[in-house]
Amino acid sequence: MRGERLAPPPTRREGDARIHRRGGRNVRRAIPVLVVVLVLTVPGIAWAAWITNGSGAGRAKGGTLPTGPTPSSTTITSSTITLTWSDVTVGGQPLSTLTGGRYVVSRNGGASSAGCGGAIGIAATTCVESGLSPATTYTFTIAAKLGNWVGNAGTSISRTTLSAPTVVSTNPSSRGQGAANQTITVTGTGFVSGATVSFSGGGITVNSTSFSSATQLSTNVTVSSGASTGSRSVTVTNPDGGSGSCPGCFTVNAGPTIAFPTATAQEVVTHNQTASFTVTGTAFQSGVTVAISGGFTITGVTYIDASHINVNVTALGGAFKGVYDLTVTNPDGGSRTSTGSMKNA
């Protein structure tokens, strides 16, 4: 024991040997085991992840529709206002092109006419608001609509419809039955180019109408011989549909009738001879004129009364012998023709 204590310290190799021989033997045996454990465990660390679940919620947000566009008006009449506006975009797309995309036009805070979509709206950027009263101011707003969504209305505009035309008088104010191609001047207000004239009661054909000014139109009419006599209402209608009437502003007078001569009771005048005869009938007017379709020269016409006209004629020698027509025309244009009533014999 003493000797051992005095013995030189073992060499490094000896020491290693001692370790190997003694306690170190156990340690060295343990190391491989531990290494194996580590080899098995470390991958286990990597492989055995912590399961980390959870719950919660995700979110999406609803947008809003843009404020409606401000309309402008392109055409105003006495009964309509045409509105136009710019297409707003929703999600980068023009609203009018989207499924369910519309514009709701409001008139005076209520629904617009059907022409502008009413309460449903319209998938367009223009519309004609109709059924308006003349000379009336209306306020319009427009809101965007997409599906069930309706956005805020845009800036409003107010527009006043034009006044409807009025008819004050006609000149002349009457024409007789049978009056053809009579020019009548219609006086009033609010006339626009393209306005038309019409007469109530039938039997008056308007051949043409020309625009003279906002207060005057000129119309050409023919009154049939069968037109009812009496007063008629004269109506002027502008192209926008606005119209105005003047009850009793025009009268159809009774036209002349001819009882003699007629085709069965002819006035016969010998070739190159003169004759004086009386045309009988009704509704002759002072200033009446008489015409014969040929074969005669009229040398004198004298109005006697509403039933008699004295006529002087010469049967032309150079004319063909035959039958001709006699026509009586009053100053009001009322006219009647007795066919085949004059004979150049």
Partner: peptide
Amino acid sequence: DNTSQNGCQGATFTQSVTLSGAS
């Protein structure tokens, strides 16, 4: 879709989810 009510403008829509993960 177009059935969305007008009152949904500006709304926040919440959808529950379950989350699954691991370290």
